[in-house]
Amino acid sequence: MPRYLAGRLAQALAVLWAAYTVVFVILHVLPSDPITLQLSAGGADISQLTPTQLHILKDRYGLDDPILTQYFHGLWNALHLDFGMSLTQNVTVGSLITDKVGSTLELTLVALPLMVIGGIGLAYLASYVQWRPARTLLARLPAVGVSLPQFFVGLLLIQAFSFSLHWFPATGEDGWRSLVLPAVTMSLLGAAMLAQLLIRSFADTWREPHIATARAKGLSRGTVQLRHVLRNASLPALTLLGILLGYTVTNAVVVESVFSRDGLGQLAQRAVLGQDVPLVQAIVLIAAAGFVVVNLLVDLLYTLLDPRVAAAARAG
């Protein structure tokens, strides 16, 4: 097991390094002049600068150095969580992110259980209910959830629950009430995707031969579903859950702008629009790190839930 763990950790670090490298290459090496890009992002026009001024500026941002030096310098700093100065705002990237990350984290932590409970709950019901019309209805529901765009769901919820019913505020970040609508919006797509996969998985598991063994013991449908079907059916959903969580920052971009929340998503959007290279780089790395950590957890969870994977892990 320690070897398996070490292997997974090494993989995670390799993914992070690759993410940094890809972002660096795209932002620095692709044919667009990084100096112009960064200077104009900083509000300066390159044609009005004297060569001396240009040189001073380049020196300040380290743009004079050879590309490899810049790369390793940046990598070294990134390892120390130092992402440099933002080009558009006169503060460090680190302080900008620590400012905003809390709001997004809060949103995600509320949305995640909603997503898991909603997805599993719907699939569990759809698989358990015997009455055909209800069963069909429940089984079709996730397709609707998957096909609705997130911003549309958000606007719909605002219309219904803030403007008509006045239950929750439409925007802002003020207490738990302001978290409800964004969290529901954020979780809906994931829940629908999870449910879609799980309904299929439940049906497949019910047809497995070992279910016949369980039923032949004389166990009730409820017991069979809870003790024998649920765990086996959830295994394929675990991978999907990891992927869905990886999309947190992407989701936050949409949800935070619909509900005017000032989080990482909004920050990312502004950074891209303002061509704030260090900030974009940092946010991409954070998203990648989140993805990597979540999938590392999923891999470890697999070894807990599936003894076959655990056996392979011990062997590998």
């Binding site: 497995e208 031969p209 070992h210 016949a212 063994t213 369980a214 039923r215 032949a216 013991k217 004389g218 166990l219 009730s220 003790r227 024998h228 765990r231 086996n232 295994l235 839930l305 599936d306 003894p307 076959r308």
Partner: peptide, 26 residues
């Protein structure tokens, strides 16, 4: 519900393929 009362105490099953006849996660 009725049939299930008979399974176990009245009739037991030894299924076909032992490789897939047991719950792999239990």
């Amino acid at each position: 519900r009725v049939l299930r009362q008979l399974r176990g105490p009245f009739v037991g099953l030894v299924p076909q393929d032992p490789m897939v006849g047991l719950n792999p996660t239990m």
